[in-house]
């Protein structure tokens, strides 16, 4: 079997049960992609397969023989970060960082989908969807952050999508706790 991962060709024979995630982590030394739930519920394992974001824990390496795969390691490196990685750093889009590789790969895939004009459950119109905070939250709902860094993740994605900073939310003192 062979795969092109982050532009590099890998050849290996692995057990048919090996998930794409385990192939990367356990056999090829690419440990950037994380195993959270191992059931497609948390998104920590998100990779881009032939340009599309998928849960790498829920697919078999053998089924991707010949495919092009991008993991967080290929997206950018120290000193040469991808714009999404830089934005996560700038906006502090994490606390523990465990979900971050999946969040970033998912966000990159998500913005490609939005660029293609794909709508979401949050879209009023299926033909004229525009990204906003509600859209970003909905489209990123497959990535769980136990530290709840969500507002900063949205900020990071907003920056890369060219949406600028969010309007600050002002709460009158009397409304706090109301």
């Amino acid at each position: 079997m062979q795969w092109t991962i982050n532009g590099q060709r890998y050849v290996a024979e692995v057990d048919v049960r090996t998930s794409l995630l385990d192939l990367a982590r356990e056999h090829l030394g690419l440990t950037g992609s994380k195993k959270g739930c191992d059931h497609g519920q948390c998104g920590a394992c998100t990779m881009l397969v032939n340009g599309r974001r998928v849960n790498s824990c829920l697919t078999l390496a053998v089924m991707h023989d010949g495919d092009e795969i991008m993991t967080i390691e290929g997206l950018g490196q120290v000193g040469n970060l991808h714009a999404m990685q830089s934005a996560f750093v700038k906006h502090d889009g994490y606390q523990c960082g465990y979900c971050t590789p999946g969040q970033i790969c998912s966000a990159v895939g998500m913005l490609d989908e939005a660029k293609k004009g794909w709508a979401s459950h949050a879209s009023a119109s299926l033909t004229d969807a525009e990204l906003n905070d509600a859209e970003i939250s909905e489209r990123m709902s497959g990535n769980i952050c136990r530290c709840a860094a969500y507002p900063n993740i949205v900020d990071a994605i907003r920056e890369v999508a060219g949406l600028g900073d969010r309007e600050p939310v002002l709460v009158a003192a009397g409304e706090v706790g109301a």
């Binding site: 974001r53 998928v54 697919t59 895939g109 299926l126």
Partner: peptide
Amino acid sequence: YEVLSRALLAGASGQLRNK
């Protein structure tokens, strides 16, 4: 068939729908 598009978008996550 807008109902179909809406139902699909109401299910799962972006990653799962891609697969």
